[in-house]
Amino acid sequence: MSWSNDTLSSIKPKIMAFFLMTIWSPVTLAEQLPDFNASFDIRVLGFHIGEAHQEMTCQGSECLLTSKAEPPGWARQFINESAIEKICLKQTNDQLKWLEYKKFLTRYYDDKTIHKTYTLVRKEKLNKVEYIEKNKSWPNQKHLYDVISMAYGIQFQVLNKKPLTNLYLQDDKIQQKMNFTAKNEDDEIDLPFQDEAQTKLFAFHNGKIDAQLWLMPKLNYFPVRIIILNKEEDRKIELELNHKPTLK
């Protein structure tokens, strides 16, 4: 089959136009979570027992989420531990990707203080998640979070209108899929810095925890309250944002 010069002359501009449209057409990028500083009141059995301070800083797409929680001395009858948790994440067009979790735990007893370290690492080439200190491993799931970063992983998905499917909770004992019983439900709650705050409620669970999470659309869907029931220990912890986060 051969083309005439006139036909080729008419086709060439169309090919060039298509090529330029392909090159210059805008690429839809995911909305990224900004750097932030935030403080949450911690409640156990309805009692305020201290604060958790959380901070995320990013260099390009690589982010470090840090959480620090230490109850005052009088509160150690309710919870006898303090923790610093550091979580490495990566923001992509597809997800807030979990890379590594490290926890420095201190437990207080009448006659001693114990320090422990827990490290969980996603190893892409080996297609697994490894618990370094115990030489244990689990499968490498795409949407995988520890109990701290889970709220921000959900925030990223909601902010970018992505589905909440196949999310897994990972800790040093188990890896389990989260099952949602409520997604994006309107709920009005009172917060320390705002009464009648309009929020979106999410409820999810697995074999270990039952959780409720409230995101606030006016704060870029930032987590403002989370309640977690550890079913194994029959212990419920509530974190509530006590002032607007500082966004950078």
Rank of each mutant, 00 (worst) to 15 (best):
T22P: 00
S25R: 05
M56H: 05
M56S: 08
S67Y: 05
P71N: 10
E55T: 15
A69N: 09
I23K: 00
L64W: 09
Q32S: 15
V44A: 09
K68D: 12
Q54T: 15
G50N: 02
Q32D: 11
S39L: 10
T22N: 04
K68R: 08
Q32T: 12
V27R: 01
N37D: 15
T22H: 06
E31R: 15
L33T: 01
H53E: 11
L64Y: 07
P26N: 05
I23Y: 03
V44E: 00
L33Y: 01
V44I: 15
Q32A: 10
S61T: 13
S25L: 13
P72R: 06
L45S: 14
T66R: 04
E55H: 15
D35E: 10
R43M: 12
A30T: 06
P34W: 01
G60K: 04
A38C: 06
V27S: 04
S25Y: 09
F47W: 10
L29M: 05
P26L: 00
E51I: 14
F36T: 10
I49A: 05
V27H: 04
D41N: 06
S61G: 02
T28S: 12
V44Q: 01
A38W: 11
I42L: 12
E51K: 14
T57C: 08
T57Y: 15
I42P: 12
I42K: 02
Q59V: 13
P26V: 04
F40K: 00
M56T: 07
Q59A: 13
M56Q: 12
S39M: 10
F36S: 09
E62Q: 11
L33F: 02
S25G: 11
R43H: 12
E31C: 04
M56L: 14
